[in-house]
């Protein structure tokens, strides 16, 4: 429980699942979920290193993780706007169907 490796391992598992989702899912929203998993894995690593790396005066890892959460919120909003546009243009969000820049 109080070891760096256990947190890193959970982060690694989350990252691998997220990567697998991004590689195999063919629905835009499902790919977005995979990206959220990857961001969570990165955040978990940052906070774990902050805790176990002896950096606890100004909490750089936690500030960095906060910035990642802000970025994830921005990314989700813009990605869903794009997905809704894609759906309006192609009537599907199967990402292999979207091959043109102009519908």
């Amino acid at each position: 429980m109080d070891s760096l490796e256990s947190y890193l391992f959970i982060g690694l598992v989350l990252f691998c699942f997220g990567l697998y989702a991004v590689m195999t899912r063919r629905n835009g929203v499902a790919v977005l979920m995979g990206i959220e998993l990857i961001l969570n894995a990165a955040n978990l690593n940052l906070v774990a290193f902050n805790r176990f790396g002896g950096l606890s005066e100004q909490l750089p890892g936690q500030v960095f993780a906060l910035m990642v959460i802000v970025m994830a919120a921005c990314e989700a909003a813009v990605a869903l706007a794009i997905i809704i546009n894609l759906y309006k243009t192609f009537q599907t969000i199967h990402i292999d169907e979207a091959r043109e820049m102009r519908g």
């Binding site: 959220e36 902050n50 805790r51 993780a65 994830a72």
Partner: peptide, 22 residues
């Protein structure tokens, strides 16, 4: 990991915001 504020932020922003968007 003693990151209480981050845990609350995670619940509010991810579960309350991003997941609803998804």
């Amino acid at each position: 990991l003693y990151a209480d504020f981050l845990a609350a932020t995670q619940v509010v922003i991810y579960v309350g915001g991003i997941l609803v968007l998804i």
